[in-house]
Design a protein around this nucleic acid. Structure first.
Lengths: 251, 251
DNA sequence: GAGCATTTGTGCGTATGTATG
DNA sequence: ACATACATACGCACAAATGCT
């Protein structure tokens, strides 16, 4: 009965016994579907069982195609959760002139920011030392969510010496740009001295703000910025959504 | 009956009603025990229940002391697992002259390395482009576990163009130093161009090799090294044990 | 996956000590 | 002497995360 199929099957779109492995055809089909936006970045793909039903093949065949796609970085397979279309990763360059907006615009994306919290708190030991002030002195704490093309990218917690920047809270309430606010305070330029990078799992709030799974890590950086005279302007801890951001260091 | 205790209790070492909060005394006791090595870095501390029995106080009181210790960065508390003495973090400097051994020695630690695998494999698309060779050409793949003071720090997967470094496998079999092997191949110096940094959860094998929990992330870096002439010498993917390492970028 | 033991996290109620006015 | 406020400490119960079977 079953005659050799020389034309693509009506319902599955696959051709058998034509020298092109079924898994390759499936791979190409999915590749095309991802490319033309039928599966959007970050979205969940159908389960292997669903795909094997759709293409009328064994699950192993689908897996072979998926492994290839994962190898090419187009999808990400998570045991027990499913498969997901890879998200386009934002390259975030770390250097002496690191500025969020410039960084994001250099990737042809639209930067945005939202202030989450502004408060004045006493400096605890470690922070006071880094800022070069005495322990217990007031620091302006600014927490900010930064986005690229509307997608959350990083939560930044900035610490400024309150004595030097008393108007900072008001300025930021009007315009969430840190660079602009500092310029208005008489710091037209600042320079990043060191960045320390670690990673950990996010707190529930962080996962929520960054709109990512609780089991995906965050990249944590701690940066120290100084003004041209060398005085410390701020100490910032940032938490980046790993998987949506790649920190790039050029030497 | 119960008289005011002016002297420390015989079994617990705590004094009540003497103006020093019990939780502070517990905090100081544990701090001293960590400092003199009775609890070693990375080791698990007694459970809150055990500590509250030992000090004959309520669990809340112990918790308060532990929170303070966590705030000072001396311990790390993990729900459902226990509390652990903080490990000393290795600062790993990223720069143009990044070398594992030098980096570790600069921290007064003893570097070591173990080759896990040496193989010759064809270059897949992305790698071939980065190395500046044609797709499918042979690359020498070297997988190496690097340690500081005997503790695993990073797994590195190096990719060298096989055509240029044919003797590399033999050399590394004798001496696990990459720098030394390259020098013997006529590359006395190399320079790191870019480093891309992301984070993810480790595979079971990675967690095993790095001797860390499956739920602690790894920092993943991808680096490109060039010789003085600008030719790409190797492309390396490294997986660092987050929590034992901090990547440091100085600008 | 379900079930279980272990361990930390959280909430509530209560009592006592200490400092202030 | 009294009221108030705050930190300390205890007891109990349950929630949530983890690891193991």
């Amino acid at each position: 009965m079953t005659p050799d199929a020389v034309a693509p099957d009506q319902s599955t779109g696959l051709t058998r016994r034509q020298g092109i492995a079924l898994w390759r055809q499936i791979q190409h089909t999915l590749e095309a579907e991802i490319a033309d936006g039928r599966h959007k970045p970050g979205a969940r793909l159908p389960t292997e069982a669903e795909l094997s039903a759709r293409f009328a093949v064994n699950r192993h065949t689908v897996r072979r195609a998926m492994e290839e796609l994962q190898g090419r970085g187009l999808v990400r397979i998570e045991q027990g959760r499913g498969s997901f279309v890879a998200e386009d990763v934002v390259d975030y360059r770390l250097g002496p002139r690191t500025r969020f907006s410039e960084n994001i615009r250099a990737q042809n994306r639209e930067p945005a920011g939202r202030i989450l919290r502004i408060a004045e708190v006493p400096a605890e030991a470690g922070l006071a030392e880094a800022l070069g002030i005495r322990r217990g002195r007031a620091v302006v704490l600014v927490e900010r969510l930064a986005l690229a093309d509307g997608r959350p990218v990083v939560i930044g917690t900035h610490h400024f010496p309150a004595a030097r920047f008393p108007q900072l809270p008001e300025l930021l309430a009007q315009n969430p740009s840190i660079t602009a606010a500092l310029a208005a305070c008489g710091v037209p330029d600042y320079r990043r001295r060191v960045t320390r990078i670690t990673a950990r799992l996010p707190t529930p709030e962080e996962a929520d703000l960054l709109q990512q799974s609780r089991s995906r890590p965050v990249l944590v950086t701690e940066a120290v910025n100084t003004d041209p005279a060398g005085a410390v302007v701020d100490v910032t801890q940032s938490r980046y959504a790993a998987g949506r951001v790649q920190l790039v260091v050029e030497s």
